[in-house]
């Protein structure tokens, strides 16, 4: 999870992020950020995300939970 938070902070262009942070609250939240996250999840975690998957998660912690669910499938 710590590693994931670091990667998310880098993509969102901030110093640090917390699991409770709302994804859409970031200034850098746009289609480019979504694509960058999808690419990171594919390359580093081997999971395939669609843009629509982001509709069912609000916080970074919820996103991480969905990554783990997809990975265990």
């Amino acid at each position: 999870m710590e590693e994931f938070l670091k990667k998310m902070a880098k993509i969102l262009d901030v110093e640090t992020v917390a699991a409770t942070d709302d994804l859409k609250s970031f200034q850098t939240w746009d289609s480019l950020t979504v694509l960058s996250i999808i690419a990171m999840l594919d390359a580093d975690y081997g999971v395939n995300f669609k843009a629509a998957d982001f509709n069912q998660v609000n916080t970074i912690g919820e996103l991480w939970a969905l990554v783990k669910t997809k990975k265990n499938k």
Binding site: D30, I38, A39, A51
Partner: peptide, 23 residues
């Protein structure tokens, strides 16, 4: 998504295409 286009225009679902290519 703040992008303006008409039905006459080319539409691309960028993330879907990205996924398609990688998979």
């Amino acid at each position: 998504d703040n992008n303006l286009r008409a039905k006459d225009h080319l539409f691309m679902d960028g993330t879907a295409i990205f996924n398609f290519v990688q998979v």
